[in-house]
Design a protein around this nucleic acid. Sequence first.
DNA 1: ATATTGATTATTGTATACAATATACTTATA
DNA 2: TATAAGTATATTGTATACAATAATCAATAT
Lengths: 270, 270
Amino acid sequence: MAFNTVILAEPVFYRLGYYHAQYKDKTGPACIFDLATYNVSHCKFLINPMAIVHKTRTQLVAEAIRDKILSGEIKAGEPLRQAALAEELNVSRIPVREALLQLEAEGLVNFEAHKGATVTSLSADQIDEIFDLRALLEAELLRHSVTYLTNRDLLEAEAILADLEEAISAGDSQLATGKLNAEFHDKLYSRANRPQTRELVAVYSKNSERYVRMHILLAGGINTAPEEHRKLLQLCRDKEIDSACEYLKHHILSAKKGIKALLLKLEEGA
Amino acid sequence: MAFNTVILAEPVFYRLGYYHAQYKDKTGPACIFDLATYNVSHCKFLINPMAIVHKTRTQLVAEAIRDKILSGEIKAGEPLRQAALAEELNVSRIPVREALLQLEAEGLVNFEAHKGATVTSLSADQIDEIFDLRALLEAELLRHSVTYLTNRDLLEAEAILADLEEAISAGDSQLATGKLNAEFHDKLYSRANRPQTRELVAVYSKNSERYVRMHILLAGGINTAPEEHRKLLQLCRDKEIDSACEYLKHHILSAKKGIKALLLKLEEGA
DNA sequence: ATATTGATTATTGTATACAATATACTTATA
DNA sequence: TATAAGTATATTGTATACAATAATCAATAT
């Protein structure tokens, strides 16, 4: 279970405890909660730095399946049987179906009526298009953000970069690097005040992460040179807006090349 | 019921008829089908220009609710009660929930756990961002499409434009114009070979259509001058790629201005 | 009065059961 | 043997029933 989840055996906070205990005798006592913002409207006193919200089964299932896909545990093209997933995750098929619908919206899954869901497998053409989109959108985000990036932002970005470089040299290239890479980029966009664009970019980058990872695995290492990130950061520091955006585009499109080439080779093989 | 739907009282095509009749005695005889591609794998003889596929309740419900939202029958901010919708559409809550999830993916609905779904209401800021995105994405689409637009494409675009102008002067500004406008734009992008980008643009333009319509209503008429479309078309004819893209951006952003101003005024009022 | 608690109700979330569809398999028929 | 038709099975789609949460209202205590 990702994030700060905690299992409450009995009421912890004031009103929440009441709600939780309301039918305690009828149901099992343990519920899974997630530390975040709890928002029962008339319980203002619960709003605090460590308030609580619980997740629906649907959300938990969506996370579980998403992890399976992104980690490669379920491979592209494989079918996702509702009954099997339901049993494995110990829920009914309803939340599984709803989770699959969400994942479809994220582009991770294809859902065809009466045929079921399969993990999307991106063709070389699709990867090509997605990376073009990312280049376009991310450059736009950066353009709106650079001016407002504070020193602190830049330092934080640098810190992430350091972590990233360490992760790469440490060789745990599988999961950590992808996350850190996304974090670094997002930090640079953080002052753009373009929430929907950011969300969109997040979806696309998450969706292409699978392929980046595959490429790392099969090509035997990270393809984007770490100095590219350094240079991008420097351009942002210098507030060289146009250069930074151009360089970012170049950075994204050069990452595309290797992955696309690999996919084309695999497509020929198949 | 939109599209080419047809109600089959009894089997029509060979195998389909069999499938349909399989449990005919148990169930009511009438089913709603949609003329499209019917894809039962081993029934090749059914594949033809007028093959058949039926829609799930979820899909029908999604269409119904989408219509209600886009037509303004349900206004922004209003809650969508699952039970009420289910009863009205004569289905159970399950397909309603699934339809709402789909609509959330389209950005038409907000779905909060335990609180239910509400029709999204876009702030002036959000409209601003969405139109910026559209300008960016549509210009990109046009750039990839212009070169490959055939004479026939351009003539078809012109025909749509004629319909659009007629619809405007006829005063049925409510529904038809929005659809024709989208069709015209999409025709210009049709040779871009960028399916995902096109899909994205379609979602955004559908989502902002409500506000365009509202603007038309409250401002008392179409704001974008028809000659803008004519000029854009001419630039495409002349294969003036850069000019066409720039002009398209300008066209979209100028449409934004009026709508955003209106929203800002409404926000102040509230 | 106000803040807290308990009870009630409306609404959403999910398990279960069954209906409908797609596919695989078997049989019939030319 | 190939093609079509019937049967069985796996899987998805949806209705119903119930569980859990949120919102409302009444009661209590400070």
